[in-house]
Design a protein around this nucleic acid. Structure first.
Lengths: 200, 200
DNA sequence: TTTATATAATAACACTGTTATTTAATGCGC
DNA sequence: GCGCATTAAATAACAGTGTTATTATATAAA
């Protein structure tokens, strides 16, 4: 299988890595099938056939595992974005990205909840993980920068229009509370601008 | 103080009502100052000077308390909306409502997290509470119905534009996951329409 | 081979929501 | 006013949580 001898240190580190991967895969199975609340250290340890001490050695704490799932969720987003054929129409490009965004969110709602919805109490993403999250949203940013031109639009009903406005409000505020905006002093102006835009 | 005699039954019910109110006020203090994760049944019982059994008699379970806080949050939203002077400009009216929305969310982030952010694991609002939530958003719906005309807009930067698009996407998806949309089959069309609108 | 070190397992601590059991207090008929 | 039935509250327990101190066990170095 492998004829290149590796040092004991390397072997141990490699073993740790694959162990971490399998543990994260097990954790993913749990949160996908049973929700984030069903993920406990004891259960995960039991599934892996080890003690909880190993988990604490590898991940520091439960939040370390959640943090790994956090970046895993954004990695799925990144992958979905990367798999998209780049449309010639800039507006279509943005819509494609947002549709992929929604698709990933609906396919992995628990990941999405961990990413934005406070699925785990007392968890906040680390700075490195938050940076990874912003990096995963970069294609959208680039697409918007490449687009910047408009298309036609049809008139929705008042009720649907209200839901759109609510969506903007809620989305904006949620991201703000999650500290996803790089320039907090610009947030309110952007908020108003977005609302004006959605209102035709 | 009160010269109208009330039956024992009424007195007990009245006592229960004020007890529930004070308990909810205590619970609000806890989640505002220490977050939703810090709210435990034992702590709340200890603060009130009673046993946890009383809490279960009054609210059924912890989710009953959370549910009361859920409608309490939307009641604050309702109050803030009601306190607004009704602007003559329909677009300004909508902006006022959304700004009040944001203000309430930022002032009571833990309530907001309970309302939308899954702050408490395994809690989902009851049907009655969800209906109350939609009722609290009715002024926005009415304002949009009354408006339906446009205003001018200035051009934001690409980065800010991207954040706006992200906000729409996230807000939409979050509300969808929270089952706040009355017509699920229309959601995707509304989603695309909102995105097109935000893109000018 | 013996010693030092790092790793994993066991068991415990301080919590959590919830509930069964016991205890106290209350309202009602006589 | 007294005894009984019902209701409510307190105690304590159950099953679970994240985390950690302690113990034992392998592994690596001398």
């Amino acid at each position: 299988m492998k004829d290149v001898p590796i040092s004991y240190q390397e072997a141990r580190e490699q073993g740790q890595q694959v162990l971490m991967d399998t543990l994260l895969r097990l954790a993913t199975n749990v949160i996908v099938n049973e929700g984030a609340a069903a993920l406990s250290m004891r259960k995960l340890a039991q599934m892996a056939g080890c003690s909880t001490t190993v988990l604490y050695n590898l991940f520091g704490a439960k939040n370390g595992i959640i943090d790994a799932l956090f970046v895993d969720g954004f990695r799925r987003l990144e992958t979905a974005h990367a798999a998209l054929p780049v449309s010639a129409d800039p507006l279509q490009r943005i819509l494609d990205l947002c549709l992929a965004y929604r698709q990933v969110a609906l396919m992995y709602p628990t990941h999405y909840a961990i990413m934005f919805g406070n699925a785990v109490p007392d968890y906040t993403p680390s700075d490195a993980s938050k940076q990874f999250a912003l990096k995963a949203m970069q294609p959208l940013q680039e697409a918007v920068a490449a687009a910047m031109e408009a298309t036609a639009l049809n008139n929705p009903s008042a009720a649907e229009m209200a839901m759109m406005v609510w969506s903007v409000a809620h989305g904006f505020v949620s991201l703000e509370l999650a500290a996803m905006f790089p320039h907090p002093e610009r947030t309110e102006a952007m908020y108003v601008a977005a609302l004006k835009r959605i209102l035709r």
